[in-house]
Each structure stands twice: as structure tokens, then as C-alpha cells.
Amino acid sequence: MGCFHSTVRKPAPGHENPIILASQTAFSVSEVEALFELFKSISSSVIDDGLINKEEFQLALFKNRKKENLFANRIFDLFDVKHRGVIDFGDFVRAMNVFHPNAPQEDKISFSFKLYDMDGTGFIERHEVKQMLIALLCESELKLADETIETILDKTFLEADVDQDGKIDKSEWHNFVTQNPSLLKIMTLPYLRDITTTFPSFVFNSEVEEIAT
């Protein structure tokens, strides 16, 4: 019988098969199962329903459920691909996959474009960037005069908006982040390399007969 469970357990509702999820992502089966440990702890923090709602997501990010945050909302909306107001385990693993150190750079560029294209128009527009800058200033309690914000926006759009039509398209974004790779730093989570070490308890809750590495 060995150390591992020899039977396949019935998965929890909304819990997609880890073998299938591993085949669709850069994660191994063990890593998907370790991610489930993280998912379980987030999704049960307010309502134990196997789904992450916005409040639980904010709580996991800030350890404070009252803290509304434009950027956390934006990330949540991008994870919530089915637009149901909740993130299921499959959504979570597939979104986290983009943040894997081995994920293709193109996927990271595309995700970051969507993150900043808040209105979903296919362009990052100046008013969106201004809104995000103001949100950042509120969050950090940093004070900048409106004139300074406009100067930062002028400089940014001069560099990024090559055709100077007042908005950044996907191709301009691609070139801009390629020239400024530090902008993609938020798109990589080194933690994902060591997820099985961070959540070793996945071994005891495994649904597969053998733990693949």
C-alpha cells in the first residue's frame, strides 16, 4: 500500500481533475495539488463553499477584508474568466499559470495588457492610467500634485504611445515592456517554483494514486 492513498477520491465540487489541470499548465500534478491547499485556505476564509469570492481574495492579499483596492479588483476580475463573481479552482490554476516563472513571456505581456486596459477597449488609455496612478497614490498615502501626475503621464505616453494617438495598443505595449522588462516583474511569482514545499500537506489529501513530480 505504501505511503500514498491507493484509491481515487471523489473530487470536491468545482475541483477539476489535477491531472487534466497539470496537462493544461506548466504545473506538475503535485504542484496542482499543492495549489489546491492554498486555494482551500483562501476559499474557506469567509464562506467555505470551494470558491473564492472578492472578499476572500482581498483578505488573502491584504489580511484585511475591508480594504477595497482597484488593482486587487482588477486581478480578481481577470482570474474570474467566467464572470460569475467567484473564482473556482480551475480558474485559479490557469490564472496562476501565467505567473509561473516558466510561463511564456507573451502570456505575461498579454495578461498585463488586460490588467491595464480596464475598460476592455483593446487599448490602454490615458484616463485609465491616470485613474490607476491616483489609486496608487491613495493606497500609498503619497501625495503628488495633479501637475506632476500629468507630467508623468506625458512622459509615459511619449515613450509608450509610439504613434501618438493618445492610447497604447497591444503592439506598442509589447515593445514598451520589452524595453522596460522591470514592468513585468509583477507577472512572475518565484513562490510557484516551490509550491509543493510551501504546502507539503497536499500529499495527505492527494486524489491521485501516485504523486508525479
Partner: peptide, 26 residues
């Protein structure tokens, strides 16, 4: 005061709300 030399996206990417590492902190 010092002039701001970062572009808007460098500043925005400092947001705590965009730092998903905190999801892994128990």
C-alpha cells in the same frame, strides 16, 4: 522635492494590490 523619474507603469506596479506574493504568506 525630487523630480519623479519613473514612468506611470513603474509607479503603478508598486501597488500592494498587484503583489500576489502575499497570497502565499500564511
Amino acid at each position: 522635492s525630487q523630480p519623479v523619474t519613473m514612468n506611470a507603469f513603474e509607479l503603478i506596479s508598486k501597488s500592494q494590490g498587484l503583489n500576489l506574493s502575499s497570497l502565499f504568506e500564511k
